[in-house]
Design a binder for these strands. Structure first.
Length: 490
RNA sequence: GGCUCCGUCGCCAAGUGGUAAGGCAGAGGUCUGCAAAACCUCCAUCAUCAGUUCGAAUCUGAUCGGAGCCUCCA
């Protein structure tokens, strides 16, 4: 079974066949750097991060390009509001973006080009379009003549008549057709500007992505991605610009991720219902956010809420707890027994050895991470079944199966950016994360545990239970085991 | 208004023609001094209606409900 992915262009799943065997060129629209990133950006970038990782896992040599759009009306406006230079503002938010992506545990793309460093390529592309009769200069601006490109709107599957109602020519624009869009904008006083054949100006939105993707991936490449909201106009215009200039198909597979919603509404700046990545990471571990995002298919909408994040944390804890149990289970001494194989061990071995094929099957089907997580839970249960049986503690077949299961789960989880911590470290971190709210210190808890142990040894269960109840009232749960008593937050 | 998409157990969520994964919550049980954790068992016929088919959550049509795009947006 080979990789199949949903192509927005065709509206269905297609078998993935790269242009060059063994190689993949992938371009993902980054951000316009004028503000902090919100959870919607986090989702888009996490989704393409796992696609990048999975393609590599599948043996492809991937060139992953993600741009910064660092010149744009919004940047200029925001810079003016703050009374600073737009370059400075862009730099500030490029750094913020880098910090956020690093905090989310994303791999760095192969290339992260900036629009302002590709002005000459942009100008060349615009000249090509003018020469080919696809664009025209008007005043100091250059516009793309959408009527010159018959395939316009093939990605968003609309037609000009439907669109015309919403389109209009804004005052000051020198367009021939309402749907025409700017490739180059003449600079007003105080705006960043570059010399061009049409006078000083700056690139319009869209053209930088055509110029940079062609520069690094060629005139035709494999995968182009971004959020669903970019289908129109951004990606539609990229197609018009690129194919209009080169006469070649621009992109083979268009991938678009679904939105993050809040109360079933799109999270967006204009609705004011957005959460920035840095705010979220104050409360939730980056891996919890990633896990939450991966529990839904990347094309589906996902509802962002505390309840859902808390549930994600609970789910992740279950994995880490099982992995911790597994690492404790492996005998420190030589195995003493080799019992006739028990059903639990056989099941675990089966699940462990088939995990990778199940994983691939799910991921090959348009990156079905939710199904993968289901498989992880299945394996977790099988794992817990074995590690919960004390008699198997020194059994060599059991140890082998447990080892193989946890290794496999960690290996494949890592492909999704999951299970990246040492289980004990992660559990410890979760344990202390909520400790502040309880008003207790871990030393105080340990002291009470010792006191309770003493009471239990004396069979003073009244005192023992009193201690446990008091701690429970403050949000601390005690967990007794043959190895002693540990605790965790509710 | 036009164009897309979605509606699966209390909640989250896979499944897109062969008879409903998984997680959370809930019920019962094992373990435990009692608990907790873990494990075991139980827990849905897929918005509604009408079709196509040997067979549909999956295809078609209608209805109801929700969202997105059409203006900047991951």
């Amino acid at each position: 079974m080979s990789l199949r992915l949903y192509n927005t262009l065709s509206g269905g799943k297609e078998e993935f066949v790269p242009l060059r065997p063994g190689h993949v060129g992938m371009y993902v629209c980054g951000v316009t750097v004028y503000d902090y990133c919100h959870v919607g950006h986090a989702r888009a970038n996490i989704v393409f991060d796992i696609i990048y990782r999975y393609l590599q896992f599948s043996g492809y040599d991937v060139t992953y390009v993600r741009n910064y759009t660092d010149v744009d009306d919004k940047i200029i406006n925001r810079a003016n509001e703050r009374g600073i230079d737009s370059t400075l503002l862009a730099e500030e938010f490029i750094s913020a973006f880098d910090e956020d992506m690093a905090a989310l545990g994303l791999l760095k793309p192969t290339i992260e080009p900036k629009a302002t460093q590709h002005i000459s390529q942009i100008i060349t592309l615009v000249e090509r379009l003018i020469a080919g009769g696809r664009a025209y200069a008007s005043g100091g601006d250059v516009y793309y003549a959408v009527e010159s490109f018959p395939d316009y709107l093939k990605l968003s599957k609309r037609n000009m008549d439907e669109m015309r109602a919403g389109a209009r020519i804004a005052p000051g624009e020198l367009k021939r057709h309402p749907m025409d869009f700017a490739l180059w904008k003449s600079a007003k006083a105080g705006e960043p500007a570059w010399e061009s054949p049409w006078g000083p100006g700056r690139p319009g939105w869209h053209i930088e992505c055509s110029a940079m993707s062609i520069q690094y991936l060629g005139e035709t490449f494999d995968i182009h991605g971004g959020g669903k909201d970019l289908v129109f106009p951004h990606h539609e215009n990229e197609i018009a610009q690129s194919e209009g200039a080169t006469g070649k198909p621009f992109v083979k597979y268009w991938l678009h991720n679904g939105f993050v919603n809040v109360n079933h509404e799109k999270m967006s700046k204009s609705l004011g219902n957005f959460f920035t990545i840095r705010d979220i990471l104050k409360t939730y571990d980056a891996e919890v956010l990633r896990f939450f995002i991966l529990t839904a298919h990347y094309r589906s909408p996902i509802d962002f809420s505390d309840q859902n994040l808390d549930e994600a944390r609970l789910g992740l804890t279950r994995f880490y707890q099982a992995l911790a149990n597994a690492s404790n289970f492996v005998p420190q001494t030589q195995p003493r027994s080799n019992q006739p194989e028990r059903e639990e061990i056989a099941e675990l071995s089966d699940r462990a050895s088939s995990l990778e094929s199940r994983f691939k099957e799910a991921m090959d089907d348009d990156f079905n991470t939710a199904l993968v997580i289901g498989h992880f839970f299945d394996l977790t249960r099988a794992l817990n079944r074995v590690t919960a049986i004390p008699e198997l503690a020194f059994d060599s077949a059991a140890a082998t199966a447990v080892n193989s299961a946890s290794n496999s789960m960690i290996k494949l989880g890592n492909v999704l950016g999951l299970f990246i911590s040492a289980p004990s470290v992660w559990l410890e971190k979760q344990k202390h994360a909520d400790l502040d709210e309880t008003g207790l210190s871990s030393a105080a808890i340990e002291g009470l545990i010792s006191e309770r142990q003493a009471a239990r040894a004396n069979r003073d269960f009244a005192r023992s239970d009193q201690i446990r109840d008091e701690l429970a009232a403050k949000g601390i749960l005690l967990l007794d085991s043959p190895q002693g008593t540990t605790w965790k937050c509710k």
